[in-house]
Nucleic acid binder design. Structure first.
Lengths: 128, 128
DNA sequence: TCTTGACTTGGAGCTAACTCCAAGTGCTAT
DNA sequence: ATAGCACTTGGAGTTAGCTCCAAGTCAAGA
């Protein structure tokens, strides 16, 4: 599978795919004789995985570490698990921040709806 | 309230507070005779609001727009409400992305737990 | 054979959101 | 009055994560 096809399939620009490879997030991509990338099924699964993790804001650096550990074989299984657990913790934290913000947005929108007047004006002291 | 105090109270660096002011996110901060910022209670409420919105990833540009509309008075109430609704939509989208990623992380961590073997190895084809 | 178009590279440029710095000002305590 | 410290400014630097560009290569079709 050439880069254009993969790009289309996962809605990631060719530049992004090359960038991921450059920084070590997609190592060992096979090339044709003339140097053109040929992505395997396994490459595609990694790409899909990376895209999912990125969509939740996991840093590229962390994903590089995961990929690197993965390449080092079964000796790094515990480390990888630990890494995933850490990322889950910070993901849950972010989700909690968002939940709070969502509640607040809901409250504000409701205020606008009820009175057509901003809640900042109605509740000068206890707005939050 | 001087900048150091506000900085401590909301865990935002003085540089960040000055930056927010510079870009128009905290307009009309009162100054003492010698030019030193003196934050009011209302300023603090805005700061707390901004901090909350930022923690959920709302872009500064959007918050600037909200503050600007707010300053223009009641004529902008509908616009402000619309802005908040749009932000709620994209917040919900982000939360959904995270929920999916969380599930996947949970699945992977479980796999590591069950077998001590990475799910990538066990489920070469249907991993996702 | 010549053109077209997808690919290659290295490196520069961009955006968001800070973060840091140097040089200067002005209370306050000794 | 002088030392120290918190504050001021304008502007430069940083980080993450892309995104763009110029110049070049290669395979395939008219």
């Amino acid at each position: 599978m050439m880069i254009a096809e993969v790009s289309k399939k996962y809605d990631l620009s060719p530049d992004t795919l090359r960038y991921y490879e450059r920084v070590g997030l997609l190592p060992n991509i096979h090339r044709s004789k003339s140097g053109i990338r040929d992505y395997t099924e396994e490459d595609c699964r990694w790409i899909e995985f990376i895209k999912c993790m990125r969509s939740a804001g996991l840093p590229i650096e962390v994903l590089i570490e995961y990929v690197t550990l993965f390449q080092q074989g079964d000796a790094t299984i515990d480390k990888r698990k630990q890494l995933l657990i850490e990322q889950r913790v910070s993901l849950l934290q972010k989700m909690e921040d968002m939940r709070e913000t969502l509640e607040r947005l809901n409250f504000k929108i409701e205020s606008y709806e009820k009175a057509g007047v901003p809640c900042e004006k109605k509740l000068t002291k206890t707005e939050n």
